[in-house]
Amino acid sequence: MSEHVGSLLGLLCLFQIKHMFADFYLQTPKMLSGRGQYLHAGRAQHAGVHVLGSIIAFVIIGAPVGFVLLICVLEWIAHFNIDYCKACYSERKSLAPNMADFWRAMGTDQALHQLTYLAMTAAWVHFAHG
Rank of each mutant, 00 (worst) to 15 (best):
55 I>C: 03
3 E>D: 14
107 G>N: 13
54 S>T: 06
83 D>N: 11
70 L>W: 13
60 I>C: 07
14 L>R: 00
105 A>T: 09
9 L>V: 11
73 V>R: 06
48 G>L: 00
57 A>M: 01
110 Q>K: 15
76 W>Q: 07
70 L>S: 12
43 R>P: 03
13 C>A: 15
129 H>E: 03
56 I>G: 04
95 L>G: 04
5 V>H: 00
82 I>S: 08
103 W>A: 04
67 F>W: 07
117 Y>L: 02
99 M>C: 10
73 V>T: 10
57 A>T: 01
71 I>K: 03
51 V>K: 00
1 M>E: 09
20 M>P: 05
105 A>M: 06
30 K>L: 11
44 A>Y: 04
106 M>D: 11
105 A>R: 06
51 V>F: 01
124 W>G: 00
38 Y>C: 02
17 I>V: 15
69 L>S: 11
122 A>K: 02
54 S>C: 03
47 A>K: 01
63 A>Q: 01
92 R>E: 14
109 D>L: 15
4 H>N: 09
123 A>N: 03
25 Y>F: 14
2 S>N: 12
30 K>F: 09
34 G>R: 02
24 F>Q: 09
40 H>N: 12
82 I>H: 07
8 L>T: 07
29 P>W: 02
122 A>V: 06
71 I>V: 15
109 D>K: 15
109 D>H: 15
100 A>N: 11
58 F>E: 00
91 E>N: 13
58 F>N: 00
30 K>W: 08
17 I>P: 07
7 S>T: 13
3 E>P: 07
25 Y>C: 14
127 F>D: 00
99 M>V: 12
50 H>K: 02
26 L>W: 14
36 G>Q: 08
103 W>V: 08
2 S>T: 06
63 A>S: 08
49 V>D: 00
11 L>F: 01
13 C>R: 11
64 P>Y: 12
123 A>V: 05
84 Y>G: 05
106 M>E: 14
95 L>W: 04
120 M>V: 06
